[in-house]
Design a protein around this nucleic acid. Structure first.
Length: 508
RNA sequence: GCCGCGUUGGUCAAGGGGUUAAGACGCCUCCCUUUCACGGAGGAAUCACGGGUUCGAAUCCCGUACGUGGUACCA
């Protein structure tokens, strides 16, 4: 079998969203699984949609996710350039070749003329208002003009496009790896523009030419491309490359959680979750949206949750490393139906990954979060210990702050409401005695702390349970956190005693 | 409108002629834990509808409904 070569071909028009990353991931997995190449090609043929920084952003996202391409604009292989804008000169000759063979034609219609044609069809009640076989003989193109007229218009550089000439009433049949046999009537597809008036190819021409030139073996792309597949397939044939046509696989869409359509950037803002991999700042509006990374997702978890959106291994395993995904992935097990995105489940994946990641792996990320909030003196050994103590309670990375900041800084305020009503003099006496005991305690560790605490409680005929919550609140400020003696052990003698003193001061 | 694709609990989904129709998320109850979690044990909740084919259909076929994508000199 020929070498597997797949490509992720995004258009650099903004943030890279979950659907895009998943397409990239599936391409990556498929390539790795078959010891093939994973290529990144930038589809920037629409100059009106150029967005500053969007291309670099794509590189960065893939890097963060850990699925960097083997060939890309940054890291070219032998099939470059990898930016379609830099391949502009390649396309025209293929389009003209098609004109020569009678599979395409020059069209000189202005946008207004096309618009008028559509209006006319609409008013006649025609369901199909496409520029296609039914109307092309009424338009201004090289099919209706004489050869001389066409030649003359071309000579004066009259604005024109090249359109594919779709033969009607042909059945295009192809095998989709995910969906099986698919049939479409060519009559339902229009004469797509192949080469635009500015000389740039449209997606349809560029994708076929580049996939051919780059020796792409499998096209894995979103389902939104399914309706234009017949155009691409005809192009492969018309160009004379039919025998080298890649295998097709159209991936299911990722849908909004509440139904109605593809997941979009707006849904994230509306529903309060990220849809981009990383934060994206629109260069025009300066508006920034947070991505999965900024919400506190681990890249491993992000990839994991994306992989399970549309694919599953057929086993009960749900947590997969990239290596495991690579081993087990197969297109045959990709669904054909769309999946609604569920942020709750996404968070669960991250929680699982946090629980499984050793403190050493979390350390730089958590340290950075503390630094952002003004705490620099996070000694690594202590922080690693704290991470292990609290990571079961952390779903997203910023939770490490809420669950652990009090190890590094006194709580700004403490909430005594859960204990104040049951507070009494006996308890007050107990804590004063506890302070005296702590001051002279030999080995400051969790077990000794607990032992000493319970001993004093017993002597005073108090139940430890009624005392532990007050201690907790004095130390951390509220009803949360790991074992209270573990907390005191980390805090150290002086700090523990000081916090008890301050706590006592707030109680009657 | 037209064309394509799809439809198993609220969500992700296994199962593809005979199953008590897995599992996970979320929700609820209980246990563990004198906080919150983690962990453990349970629970509620599903084959879109209508026709076929068949001894037997979630599974195969046809319709309908619904969802979704496309219908640009956007990708």
């Amino acid at each position: 079998m020929e070498k597997v070569r797949v490509r992720f071909a995004p258009s650099p028009t903004g943030g890279l969203h979950v659907g895009g990353v998943r397409t990239a991931l599936f391409n990556y997995l498929f390539a790795r699984k078959h010891k093939g190449d994973f290529i990144l090609r930038i589809e920037d043929t629409d100059q009106t949609r150029y967005v500053e920084g969007a291309e670099q952003y794509i590189f960065d996202c893939l890097k963060w996710c850990g699925i960097s391409p083997d060939e890309s604009p940054e890291n070219p292989g032998e099939y470059g350039p990898y930016r379609q804008s830099e391949r502009k000169h390649l396309y025209r000759k293929y389009a003209e070749d098609l004109v020569r063979k009678g599979h395409a034609y020059y069209a000189f219609d202005t946008p207004e003329e096309i618009e008028a044609m559509r209006e006319k069809l609409k008013s006649e009640g025609k369901g199909n208002q496409q520029y296609g076989y039914a109307v092309r003989h009424t338009m201004r193109n090289s099919l209706t003009l004489s050869a001389e007229e066409t030649e003359a218009l071309l000579k004066i550089n009259f604005p024109h496009v090249i359109r594919i000439k779709m033969e009607p009433n042909e059945l295009v049949v192809f095998e989709d790896v995910i969906r099986g046999r698919i049939e479409m009537d060519t009559s339902s597809v229009d004469d797509k523009v192949l080469l635009k008036a500015d000389g740039m190819p449209t997606y349809h021409l560029a994708v076929v030419v580049d996939d051919y030139l780059m020796k792409i073996s499998h096209v894995l792309r979103g389902e939104e491309w399914l309706p234009s597949a017949p155009v691409h397939i005809q192009l492969w044939k018309y160009l004379g490359w039919g025998h080298q046509m890649p295998k097709w696989a159209h991936l299911p869409l990722i849908l909004k959680p509440d139904g109605n359509g593809k997941l979009s950037k707006r849904d994230g803002e509306r529903l309060g979750f990220p849809v981009f991999a990383m934060h994206w700042t629109d260069p025009r509006t300066r508006e920034t949206v947070k991505g999965f990374r900024e919400f506190g997702f681990l890249p491993e978890a992000f990839l994991n949750l994306l992989a399970l959106l549309g694919w599953n291994s057929g086993t009960e395993q749900e947590i997969f490393s990239l290596e495991e995904l690579t081993e087990q992935f197969s297109l045959e097990r990709v669904h054909s139906s769309g999946a609604k995105f569920d942020f709750e489940k996404a968070k669960w994946f991250n929680h699982e990954w946090i629980k499984r990641t050793p403190a050493s792996g979390l350390l730089p990320l958590v340290t950075e979060i503390y630094r952002e909030r003004g705490i620099e003196n996070t000694e690594a050994e202590k922080m690693a210990f704290v991470i292990d103590l609290i990571k079961d309670r952390c779903t997203l990375l910023p939770d490490f702050w809420d669950q652990g900041y009090y190890f590094f800084q006194r709580p700004g305020s403490i909430d005594v409401t859960p204990i104040v009503s049951k507070w009494n003099e006996k308890k007050d006496l107990f804590f004063n005695e506890l302070i005296r005991t702590l001051e002279v305690m030999d080995f400051w560790n969790s077990a000794n702390l607990e032992h000493g605490f319970k001993e004093i409680a017993a002597v005073n005929q108090l139940k430890p349970g009624e005392l532990m919550l007050p201690l907790r609140i004095m130390l951390v400020g509220g009803k949360f956190g790991p074992g209270v003696f573990d907390i005191a052990a980390v805090l150290g003698r002086e700090e523990t005693i000081e916090r008890i003193r301050q706590g006592l001061a707030e109680l009657p």
